[in-house]
């Protein structure tokens, strides 16, 4: 197995305050990793940085060659305008963007893939439903169908199961497992420790600092979880800058 994403002494944050602090490690190609940690521990920030939405304050993210074959990123609160006059097909078909670009049409094969994707997420028959009439769970199913169509090697999911009922969750977990079986790299931010233990082989436990990263059973120990909870969410406006005498390895990065 080779590395598809390497974090090198990565620090992320806003206004100079770190949300993710000096994290290093490797996501193997085809691995399936849960990113867990308390609220404010930097999980979403880490995912955004991997997706390329925000830039590192310090350190770097090195992406493997497989990366070019596509990344699908499902953010925590998608900025979808539910009042826009679009139906489920319009929304899901966005997943074909890479193939279609600005002008390409939907080929018959694409239409079949779209149909299959809707079938796979349990939304067959919803093609012409307006997106303003979908429930939260149905919308999430549609977004998973879009990820399916993106056919990406790397799939980033940010709290994909929040406020979703059990049946939808178990359907969508099935999809995530299928992606893993197909050799795709899956990284998901999750809150449900039970689900992490059952479904995800790898876990990255984050509490601004990296607490532990490795096989799930080795990471999700009582001791580690206790340590992660000890993290403070405090955002000290007057915290000294690292350069002012705090030696955390910045020199190495420079």
């Amino acid at each position: 197995m080779s590395a598809i994403i390497k974090l090198d002494n990565l620090t992320l944050g806003y206004d100079g305050h770190p949300a993710v602090h000096h994290v290093s490690g490797t996501f193997e190609q085809g691995s399936m990793t849960a990113v867990v940690g308390p609220n404010g521990s930097g999980k979403s920030t880490l995912l955004k940085a991997i997706a390329g939405v925000i830039k590192p304050l310090d350190g770097s993210i090195i992406r493997g060659s497989d990366w070019r074959q596509g990344m699908a990123y499902l953010p925590q609160s998608a900025e979808i305008d539910r009042s826009f006059p679009a139906d489920v097909t319009d929304l899901v078909a966005l997943g074909l963007w890479k193939q279609r670009g600005l002008f390409g049409g939907i080929s018959r094969a694409d239409a079949e893939r779209l149909e299959a994707a809707l079938q796979a997420v349990g939304l067959a028959g919803f093609e012409r439903r307006g997106i303003d009439t979908l429930s939260g769970g149905q919308l999430q199913r549609a977004l998973f169908a879009r990820v399916l169509l993106q056919d990406a090697k790397v799939i980033l999911l940010d709290e994909p199961f929040t406020a979703i009922d059990e049946r939808t969750v178990s359907d969508l977990i099935g999809l995530v497992r299928r992606w893993h079986g197909e050799g795709r790299t899956v990284i998901a931010v999750l809150h449900d420790a039970e689900m992490v233990r059952q479904v995800f082989p790898q876990t990255l436990l984050l509490a601004r600092e990296l607490i532990d990263w490795g096989p799930t059973e080795a990471v999700m120990t009582r001791e580690n979880l206790r340590r992660s909870r000890g993290m403070t969410e405090a955002w000290d406006e007057h915290a000294p800058w690292h350069e002012d005498g705090h030696n955390h390895g910045h020199e190495a990065a420079q």
């Binding site: 699908a72 990123y73 998608a78 900025e79 305008d81 679009a86 319009d90 966005l94 963007w97 879009r146």
Partner: peptide
Amino acid sequence: RALVAECLDPSFLRSVS
């Protein structure tokens, strides 16, 4: 098409294009 995508889901459009 890009305008529709930009209205419908701007963050998605940013992630693919």
